[in-house]
Design a protein around this nucleic acid. Structure first.
Length: 271
DNA sequence: CCCGGAACCTGAAGGC
DNA sequence: TGCCTTCAGGTTCCGG
């Protein structure tokens, strides 16, 4: 479900409520939540501690309890939701629940049980350790993007999904970014010209920032912590638009499969 | 080392 | 109605 804009939307919404609150309990209702880290370790790292800040790295959320406690990481994978509630939340898919002193609950609801909690204490996954550049950081320049793509023969849309190169882009925004940059998704990364790299760089920033400002994309599962859907769904120009006319040129939008995942593109606008 | 494909799950939607 | 297949926003593992 969530890509960088959705995770960032969740982070901002949660920050207003949970920073400064003490975690008085952490309960688990499904073992897959703690499959990477034993539940007692997760409870010890959070119960009794006050949330000092909440950060995002790629698609991971990080709860910080202070310098002497490792950051507490949450990955929502495909269907995870973090929902705030004042009262006990009744949900068939409730997998874990933080009790926040003086507020209520932060509920982890996850239909497919792919999401998980773990600590950034040195035992975190290789996937986390190898995360690439944050695309919305000042360090992510067109020059850096050029250095990354010139070494890669991977199709450019698949390249955008590689979390160890650029952290946070997922399957929806990879198609949207290629369309915005007018680049065909199956082009070899190294084949992009300097101008195309500049276009791709500005499209990455433009699409991610616009999606954040519209609070993410809801196709089915994504919800903000207050339960509201994201609003970028109406702004999608290519993802899910198979057989519909391109709104730029009217050509029928095509769907293809790359590395087992759907890609949408306009054969007229993209080169 | 790289690559593709399967696996991990549940549920919705479409075809017949 | 119901059965079957396909698909879903992500990552990890395994074999070649």
């Amino acid at each position: 479900m969530p890509e960088l804009p959705e995770v960032e939307t969740i982070r901002r919404s949660l920050a207003d409520v949970i920073v400064g609150k003490k975690v008085s309990d952490l309960e688990f209702f499904h073992p897959r939540v703690h499959r990477h880290t034993d539940p007692e370790t997760l409870q010890q790292a959070s119960i009794g501690n006050t949330i000092k800040s909440i950060d995002r790295r790629g698609k991971y959320l990080l709860l910080n309890f202070g310098d002497d406690v490792p950051p507490f990481a949450i990955h929502l994978r495909m269907s995870g939701q973090l929902l705030l509630s004042k009262e006990i939340l009744e949900s068939k898919h409730l997998r874990a629940r933080f009790t926040l002193q003086g507020y209520g609950f932060l509920n982890f609801v996850d239909i497919r049980t792919f999401g998980s909690f773990f600590l950034i204490d040195g035992n975190e996954s290789e996937g986390y350790k190898k995360l690439g550049i944050e695309p919305l950081s000042d360090d992510f320049t067109s020059e850096l993007l050029g250095q990354l793509v010139e070494k890669s023969s991977t199709p450019i849309k698949q390249f955008l999904l590689m979390q160890d190169r650029i952290a946070g882009i997922g399957n929806i925004y990879a198609s949207e970014i290629c369309f915005d940059a007018k680049i065909l998704p199956y082009r070899h990364s190294y084949s992009l010209s300097k101008i195309e790299i500049d276009d791709l760089h500005s499209s990455i920033l433009k699409i991610l920032n616009r999606a954040i400002s519209e609070m993410g994309t809801t196709l089915s599962d994504f919800r903000r912590p207050d339960g509201q859907p994201g609003e970028f769904s109406n702004s999608l120009k290519i993802y899910g638009h198979k057989d519909l006319p391109c709104e730029v040129c009217g050509t029928t939008i095509k769907r293809m499969v790359q590395h087992g995942r759907s890609t949408f593109f306009c054969p007229q606008c993209q080169h």
